[in-house]
């Protein structure tokens, strides 16, 4: 059975009420073409379990797609708060649970190892492990090691219904290669009940087998895959295209106000991904090209090349 589908076919797999997690870190690696399609379809009532995918979190929060947010930190590096995310918590529009990065990533890791719980030192003594009206903010057991007396936290394994990742290259068997730092993608892909991948480019499997060190997620973990060029825009892909900082600035400005943000969303979800890229225009996409030595965008000035 072929794993290859279109972006639209892959999004069909996400149903209201599901728990979902996305690849990404800060302004990189985030499957945002997938997120825009989710928003275009108005799929709601989702439980996001997210660690570093600030873009997915803020867009879905602003679109009203989320029922619950289980997370460790969402912010736009260099651009301040994720305002839609902050707003839905401040207004009480969503349920939420706070973890630390390592605690939540370890919950994924435990699920990926087929274990019922994770063991961490984080959260001990903090208010993340506090309670409201006698109810624990996050389910945990403060546990003393039976092999000594060291204290640790036990946290339940987390296995999202759907994990969506975006990679640099992939093949028809679902193998996904990623260049540069890999965020939480390994742990997410191992934890997910269903793993969906979009990639910048399909390549022949022989190329994957010739460069296996780049395969962060082997195809045996991935059930569906689609080729979606610029599928991370406005976040970037190391060595392919840089984050679109002009677009990020516009987004940050629009997200200050719900009406302005609704207009932004209407704009970016009109038509399909090809329409989105066409509206961005060739000039803009060419301006995101990277320097082959550094892997990010440099501008040529009178005094030389500038980052």
């Amino acid at each position: 059975m072929s794993k290859v589908g279109t972006l639209e076919e892959l999004v069909d797999l996400v149903k209201p009420g599901m728990s979902i997690s996305f690849g990404g870190f800060a302004h990189s690696l985030t499957p945002l073409a997938f997120v825009r399609e989710l928003i275009r379809r108005d799929i709601r009532d989702l439980e996001l379990i997210g660690i570093a995918e600030a873009w997915a979190a803020d867009m879905l929060a602003g679109a009203g797609s989320l029922r619950k947010i289980v997370f460790s930190n969402f912010m736009f590096e260099g651009f301040g708060l994720c305002r839609n995310f902050s707003r839905v918590i401040e207004t009480g529009a969503v349920e939420f649970e706070d973890y630390s990065h390592f605690a939540l990533a370890s919950r994924f890791s435990a699920a990926g190892l087929g274990l019922p719980f994770a063991t961490v030192r984080s959260l001990l003594g903090s208010d993340l492990a506090g309670s409201d009206d006698g109810v624990q903010r996050v389910r945990h057991v403060d546990f003393t090691s039976p092999f000594g007396d060291e204290r640790v936290m036990l946290l339940p394994a987390a296995s999202p219904d759907v994990v969506v990742i975006h990679g640099h290259r992939g093949d028809e068997h679902g193998n996904v290669q990623i260049l540069g730092a890999t965020a939480v993608i390994e742990e997410q892909a191992r934890a997910g009940k269903t793993v969906i991948a979009t990639v910048e480019q399909f390549v022949d499997s022989a190329e994957i087998r010739a460069t296996p060190n780049h395969t962060v997620v082997p195809g045996l973990l991935v059930s569906h895959i689609a080729e979606v060029p610029y599928g991370a825009h406005p976040t970037g892909m190391f060595r392919l295209y840089d984050a679109d900082y002009d677009h990020i600035r516009q987004y940050a400005e629009a997200s200050r106000d719900p009406a302005a943000f609704a207009a932004y969303l209407a704009d970016v979800t009109t038509g399909d991904h090809q329409d989105y890229l066409a509206r961005l225009g060739v000039r803009r996409l060419l301006n995101l090209r990277v320097d082959p030595h550094f892997g990010y965008h440099l501008e040529r000035t009178e005094s030389g090349w500038r980052a």
Binding site: S72, N73, L81, C82, S100, H101, S122, L128
Partner: peptide, 8 residues
């Protein structure tokens, strides 16, 4: 934004 890696 929340803890991120700070609590860790």
């Amino acid at each position: 934004p929340g803890s991120g890696g700070a609590n860790d």
